[in-house]
Design a protein around this nucleic acid. Structure first.
Length: 430
RNA sequence: UCCAACGUAGCUCAGUGGUAGAGCAAUCGGCUGUUAACCGAUUGGUCGUAGGUUCGAAUCCUACCGUUGGAGCCA
């Protein structure tokens, strides 16, 4: 009977067949250990010469790394296995013999591994990270579907910049100029006016020459937008959403977190509500921690963010930034117009900003003024201004960066390991 | 774009002015519970590229190319 490694617990003491690849192998004169992987998990197969016969045993000893095969054997419990189960192999059939697989069980450098990303994905570590990414995506759909959100897909090809500041990937749209989307947010505002609560999940592109462990050229964002919700309502959605995602990973990715050596005690604390500090307080806090390179009105750099995050064991919201350093569409605080109703959510353990969100300007005249103040001209956003012309309502939204969230939850250093085929500065292959 | 470090065997690295090295991988042999298994043997090199200094350069100098980390900007 055919099955998979993820299902072997249901076949205890039965003989099953699994399609698998050989991840690694250890052997002695009369016994061989096959480290098998089948995509669903990793399991050890035991080949005993006395049971399987001389010819088959020699064949097993000659198996090469990453050769594919159908392995048949009896599933037995064994406490020495991380999975809890092993296979006593009775037979195997080689499908394809791999020769000189480049990635060996020893250590490799970053460049080599990135050049072999298509093969590196097979490793236990990368398998764990991608399964956690998948669980975060699954939990995201679950959360928003269960809370009455409609998934709306904004366009990827756009006619102009959403915020005008960051660099966009340019392409041709027949005779016109076009750009790859750097945010679906403005379109999500239109969607919120049509469907109430909406969310998007899609790729986004930034042609920035950033070279840090937190940056990708192409990355995925989840962008919810909610009509009739103010800034505080939005913060509550954010902390509930992030908590749901973290708790889902803890529940459904135990083997993967273990394989990555993640300290799950840190993750167990991630339950709403999250602490909030104002931008003013954050500036004060950073100065108290000894930084003298920042003044009110400046944006936080990575070291500042880390210093703030270190003061908490949960993600922390930094709220109400100066309007000048934030996007044109953010709503000024009625009590203090020099700051806007916004928040960045900073992940613990130095993983940086994972969410940026705000309440949006709903007044047409103010929006027109901000639009011009930010040097935006032309008719490209007439449709966006019209949202304030026909039944404008208070509304808020936010964007969560998937890869930074995966990096934090999985506990990996660099976002390049959190997306299957990362696009980085100077890397478009494979 | 700026700053810093690095570039030696398929991979990871040592070698800092005088004969090119180790571990892993590969190949051959040994080993009945291995966890990056272990033990023995064999194979493997245009020292990133170009120029310069020197009797002599992997080693010192210059330029370029590439990689990595960081800054800025952002999720």
């Amino acid at each position: 009977m055919k099955t998979t490694i993820s299902q072997v617990s249901k076949h205890l003491n039965e003989e099953v067949t699994i399609g698998a690849w050989l991840a690694n192998k250890r052997s002695s004169g009369k016994i061989a250990f096959l480290q098998l992987r089948d995509g669903t998990g990793f399991m050890q197969g035991i080949v005993v010469k006395a049971d399987i016969g001389e010819d088959k045993f020699q064949e097993a000893k000659a198996l090469t790394q990453e050769s594919s095969m159908y392995v048949t054997g009896t599933i037995v419990e064994d406490t020495r296995s991380p999975l809890g189960y092993e296979m006593q192999v009775t037979d195997f059939e080689i499908i394809h013999e791999a020769v000189d697989y480049p990635i060996t069980p020893k250590e490799h450098g970053t460049e080599f591994l990135m050049d072999h990303r298509h093969l590196w994905l097979r490793s236990k570590r990368q398998h764990g990270v991608m399964k956690i990414r998948n669980e975060i995506i699954r939990a995201t759909y679950e959360f928003f579907n269960e809370n009455g959100y409609v998934k709306i897909d904004p366009p990827i090809l756009t006619g102009s910049s959403a915020e005008g500041t960051t660099e966009l990937f340019h392409t041709k749209y027949f005779e016109e100029d076009a750009y790859l989307s750097q945010s679906g947010q403005l379109y999500m505002e239109a969607a919120a006016m049509a469907f109430g609560k909406v969310f998007s999940f899609g790729p986004t592109f930034r042609a920035e020459k950033s070279k840090t462990r937190r940056h990708l050229i192409e990355f995925w964002m989840i962008e919810p937008e909610m009509a009739f919700m103010d800034h505080e309502d939005s913060l509550e959605v954010q902390e509930q959403y992030v908590s749901h995602v973290v708790q889902s990973v803890l529940k459904n990715c135990k083997i993967e977190l273990e394989a990555l050596g993640r300290d799950t005690g840190q993750l167990e604390k991630i339950q709403a509500p999250f602490p909030r500090i104002s931008y003013d307080e954050a500036i004060q806090l950073v100065k108290e921690k000894g930084f003298d390179d920042i003044e009110w009105g400046d944006d936080f750099g990575a070291p500042h963010e880390t210093a703030i995050a270190e003061s908490y064991d949960k993600p922390v919201f930094i709220t109400n930034y100066p309007a000048e350093i934030k996007a044109f569409y953010m709503k000024p605080d009625p009590a203090r117009p020099e700051v806007v109703l916004c928040a960045d959510l900073i992940a613990p353990e130095g993983y940086g900003e994972i969410i940026g969100g705000s309440q949006r300007i709903d007044d047409l005249e103010l929006m027109k003024q901000r639009y011009e103040d930010h040097g935006l001209t032309g008719d490209a956003y007439n449709w966006y201004l019209q949202l304030r012309e026909y039944g404008s309502v208070p509304h808020s939204g936010f964007g969560l960066g998937l890869e930074r969230t995966v990096a934090w939850i999985a506990g990996v250093e660099h976002v390049r390991e959190t997306i299957p085929f990362p696009r980085l500065l100077n890397r478009l292959y494979p």
